[in-house]
Computed example of a mutant assay.
Amino acid sequence: MKNESRVIFDAYTQQIAQINGVTDPTRQFAVNPTIEQKLENRIQESSDFLKSINIVPVDEIKGEKLRLGTSGPIASRTNTSSSDRTPRDIHELEDDGYECFKTDFDSYIKYSTVDLWAKFPDFQERMRNQVIEQIARDRMMIGFNGTSHATDTDLATNPLLQDVNIGWIQEMRVKAPARVLNNVKVGDIGGNDYKNIDAAVYDIVGSLIDPWFREGTDLVVICGRDLLHDKYLSLVDNNPAPTERNALQTLLANKQLGGKRTMTVPFFPAKSVMVTPLNNLSIYYQEGSRRRTITDNAKRDRIEDYQSVNEDYVIEELGACCIIDGIQTPNATNDGWI
């Protein structure tokens, strides 16, 4: 690292030490609670999807869900001449809590990159944002692909971070398997389960989501990009006239499946579908659990940033969510399924 870069980098680490109330950031320290909250806010703001779900602090590493919504109707009437009014629990009765597991978000930056970035006035923001943006991507990857929390993770075997933590889809597989359809055949050929993806989504909303959640305008279909591409590409190909294409512009800007608003999210399984209100998905992190160490590793010509936090991926109300887990579509010759 150049001497000029060293001065700028030292100012960066001194700033980190000051705002966290420590003297030496090269020794592990607990991130200041105020800084921790600001960091979580920046992670959430860096992703349109994460901005739409709940990222909330919890006091304990293990406990009951926060129950950020309600699980059913409470309206009723009672003849108080003969009996007492009986209040209803607005949350699910089943024993279903959360448990946070330690997640390491460790990264490094080469001296050569520090030298390059040191030329810019926003050096500190660049150093901070590269980590924040990757944490956001990792959380989406874990949320939709995580199946376990291994003691020693293996990125080569689990490139989508499947072994870092249990994500939302896996939670549904384990805790609400009756709300998950597996290996559904969708296509206009013999042997299908549904003629098209709209019919499939319409059916699972009507049959797998609890009645009091079905009509909510906040239900969203989260799906892989390929499913939307297949549906809307055929519409574009079959409507070549300019007037029809103009009408399609509005349609494409307001994509729907089964009559519900639809969105694609990075790292969501390519041939799967999840239907749920976005505010039914949560990431809990244990307040005060974030640890950090910044190390100047001259042996490797790099700066290493070690961060960790205890977190869990939670579906608040299982009855407000359903999934098609693995969709088979017709092959190129329309005589089989892939």
Rank of each mutant, 00 (worst) to 15 (best):
S5N: 09
D10L: 08
I16E: 06
A17H: 05
T26L: 05
R27C: 04
Q37N: 09
N41L: 15
N41F: 13
I43E: 01
I53V: 08
L66E: 05
G72K: 01
A75D: 13
R77A: 13
S83Q: 15
D84N: 08
E94G: 07
T103C: 12
D104Y: 15
F105C: 06
D106W: 05
L116D: 15
L116A: 08
R128E: 15
N129H: 07
A136I: 01
R137N: 10
R139E: 03
G143E: 00
F144C: 00
D152H: 08
T153F: 09
L155S: 06
L155K: 13
T157I: 09
N165P: 02
G167Q: 00
E171W: 04
V180Q: 01
V186H: 06
I189W: 09
I197H: 01
Y202C: 04
Y202M: 10
D218K: 07
L228G: 02
D230M: 15
K231G: 04
S234Q: 15
P240Q: 04
A253Q: 09
G258F: 04
R261I: 14
F267K: 10
P277R: 00
S282L: 15
Y284W: 04
R292H: 11
T293N: 12
T295P: 10
R300M: 12
R300G: 12
D305V: 09
Y313M: 05
I315W: 00
C322Y: 05
Q328F: 14
T333Q: 14
